[in-house]
Design a protein around this nucleic acid. Structure first.
Lengths: 320, 320
DNA sequence: AAAGTTTTTGCATACGTATGCAAAAATCCA
DNA sequence: TGGATTTTTGCATACGTATGCAAAAACTTT
C-alpha cells in the first residue's frame, strides 16, 4: 500500500509498526510513522478485524431514553467502554422487547458483546446469541427463565428497606405508584414494598403508572380530588415520584408534613432545590462495571450470571 | 464457506443471494436462504465493507448529555439514521472541543460521515477530515471560520423575536442568563436579545451562567437576595430558565405576575404542569433531517453549507 | 431439433490487514 | 575475523465478501 511504498518497506512491516509488541527496528518504525503521519494514514479497523476476529465493538441497545436515569447510564457506559478500548454501536429501541432486526444489526458487525438497558429479549434470541457465542447482559432487567447475564439493583430488598423506613414513621395511608407493569423493575419494587406491609396486615393502595411524570401527576391529582390524602407515596422511579410531588404541590398538600414522597433511582433532578426528593440510590457506576465485567467474563468461559447490587436510601426533604 | 458448501453452490452465489438486485434463480435462492437460516448465517458487514467501500456507519459525537434536549436529539438521530440504513458509532465526549483521538476512532472504522452535537472542532481536524473526504456536520454549533457543515436554530433571530415579545409587555428590569459563554448558541442568543434593547436604549442585565440548572438557580437566588426583582428573565436554554424559575418560586416571587421567565429549546419538562415554561421551540426533527441531508449531499459534491432553521415561540404560563 | 438468446453460475481476483515461516541483516562472542 | 546467535524483514497466505468475465445452463424461436 501507499505508506509501505513511500517508506520503502513491505506491507508486513507497516502492519508491525501499528501492532503493539511486534518486532520492528527503531529506525524503520520512525520512518514508517513519519510517512504515515504525512499521509495521515490510519490502520483500517475493519480489515484488521477480519484477521484478528476481534472488532472491539460493543452493541448497546437502549430503551426509554426519556428517563434521565438512562442518560447517566449511557454516559457512564460509553466512557467506561471507551476506556477499555471498545467502540459503541448504539441502537435506540422503541419496544420493550428487542427485535430480531436490531440484534441482526449487531451480528453483522460482529460486536463482541451486547448490552441491553431497560428492555427485554425473547428467549429464542438469547439461544441464538448463545449459539453465536455473543455474550449479552441485560441492564436493569431480570427474568429467571432467561439464560443470559443480568445486572440490576436488588429491587426487592431495596423496596423492602423503604417499607421498613416508612413503617417506622407510623404511616397508615400508603400508596405505591407502579412503573410499566410488565417490567421486572416495577414488579420487584412492588413486591418488596407491598409484601412487607402485607405481613403486617397494613393495606397498600396500588396505582398503575407507566414510569412517566405525566401519568403519576394525573394519578395523584385524581387521588387528592377524591379526598384521599396519603401519608406516603412511593413511586417506582424518580420521575414518577416527581410527578406525584408536583401534583401534591399543585393541590397545596404540604410535603412532607401531610404526605411524604419517595422515589427510586436518584437522578440528578431529585437533588434540585425545589424537589429534594428522598430516594433510593442506584449505584450506576457499580452496575456498569458489573455489566462490562460479565461480558468480558463470557469471552473466557460460558454460562451466565445474575448480579444484584444494593444501593442505599438517601434522605432528603420529602420524608420526615 | 459453510453455507455455500451445504447448499452446493459457490460462495459467489451465496453472496448474490444477499446482494439486492443480483441475479440468482429462485430455486437456488430458496435453497441458500434455507441453509443460511439453519446455520443462522449473516453476511459479515466488515468483509463486505472492505470491498464495497461503504460501511453504512455514521459517527455521532455528543456532549453535554445532561441536558434533556440532547436526549431527544439522540433519540431522533438514531431513529432517522436507522431508517436510512445507517449504524451509529457513538462517542460521548467531555470536552467542548472534540479531540483528535475521538476522530481517529471514527476514521479507523471508516465512518461515512460524522455528526457532532453541542461541541466544536479545531480547524486542522476539519481540514484533515476534508482531505479524507469524510463529511462532518456540526449540530447546534456554528463558526464562520470553519469549513464544514453546520445546522442550528437561527438563534439571533429567535432571540430577537423574544426581545420584541418582551418589549411589548413593558418590561424594564430585564435579565439574560447566558449559557457556557464560549458556545456559539449562547453568544448568538445573547447577541440577538441584547442588541434589540441596545437599539432602544434599554439596559439588559447579563448574568454569566453555564447552561446548568444549578448555576441559574444560584444566580437568580443571589439576585433576589440583593433586592433586585426583574420583570423578566430570559435563560439561554430551558434548563437555565427552570433553575431561575425554581429560584423565584423559592423566594416566593409570583410568576408571571412579578417576574416572567422565558427559556429556549422546549424540552419535555418545560410543559410539565408545575413549570409550564414559555420558551422557544427548536424544531429538532427538521434540524436532524437537515443534518443528515448535508452529510449525504457531501457524498456527491464537496463544499459545505450552513443551515439555520427558525422554530417558534410558544406561550405558556411563565409569561403574561 | 438446432441455433440463437437470456439467465444463472463458478472462477479468479481484490479489498487492507495480520502472522507463521524462512531469508536477510545485524549483533555478539571468542 | 569468522562463526554463532539474535533481531528484523519480506513472502505468502488467510480473513469473508463482491464482482467482471466467461462458461454453463436454461429458455426461445423457427
Amino acid at each position: 500500500m501507499e505508506v509501505a511504498r513511500l517508506a520503502n518497506v513491505s506491507q508486513s512491516t507497516v502492519s508491525r509498526v501499528f501492532t503493539p509488541g511486534a518486532s520492528v527496528s527503531e529506525k524503520t518504525r520512525q520512518r514508517v510513522l513519519e510517512v504515515a503521519e504525512q499521509l495521515n494514514y490510519q490502520p483500517n479497523a475493519l480489515a484488521r478485524s477480519l484477521i484478528t476476529k476481534r472488532t472491539n465493538m460493543i452493541g448497546l441497545a437502549m430503551k426509554d431514553i426519556q428517563n434521565p436515569f438512562y442518560h447517566e447510564v449511557l454516559g457512564i457506559f460509553t466512557n467506561k467502554l471507551k476506556a477499555k478500548g471498545y467502540s459503541v454501536l448504539f441502537v435506540y429501541t422503541e419496544n420493550e422487547e428487542i427485535q430480531q432486526e436490531e440484534i441482526n444489526h449487531f451480528l453483522e458487525y460482529n460486536v463482541e458483546g451486547i448490552i441491553i438497558t431497560d428492555a427485554m429479549l425473547s428467549s429464542n434470541i438469547v439461544t441464538k446469541l448463545k449459539n453465536n457465542h455473543i455474550p449479552v447482559t441485560l441492564f436493569n432487567r431480570y427474568d429467571k427463565n432467561l439464560e443470559c447475564n443480568s445486572v440490576s439493583c436488588d429491587n426487592i430488598n431495596a423496596a423492602n428497606e423503604i417499607a421498613k423506613y416508612v413503617d417506622r414513621l407510623y404511616c397508615e395511608k400508603i400508596v405505591f405508584i407502579t412503573g410499566k407493569i410488565n417490567t421486572s423493575t416495577s414488579q420487584e419494587r412492588q413486591e418488596g414494598f407491598v409484601n412487607y406491609f402485607k405481613n403486617k396486615g397494613i393495606p397498600v393502595k396500588i396505582l398503575e403508572g407507566d414510569y412517566t411524570y405525566e401519568k403519576a401527576f394525573f394519578l395523584t391529582k385524581e387521588l387528592i380530588e377524591k379526598e384521599y390524602v396519603p401519608d406516603v407515596i412511593f413511586g417506582a422511579n424518580d420521575i414518577t415520584a416527581l410527578g406525584a410531588l408536583d401534583a401534591l404541590k399543585s393541590k397545596e398538600i404540604k410535603v412532607p408534613e401531610q404526605t411524604m414522597v419517595i422515589g427510586f433511582d436518584d437522578i440528578k433532578m431529585s437533588s434540585w432545590p425545589n424537589y429534594n426528593l428522598s430516594t433510593w440510590v442506584q449505584p450506576i457506576e457499580e452496575m456498569v462495571d458489573e455489566t462490562i465485567r460479565l461480558l468480558e467474563r463470557n469471552q473466557r468461559e460460558t454460562g451466565h450470571k445474575t448480579v444484584k447490587v444494593q444501593g442505599k436510601f438517601i434522605h432528603r426533604q420529602t420524608t420526615k
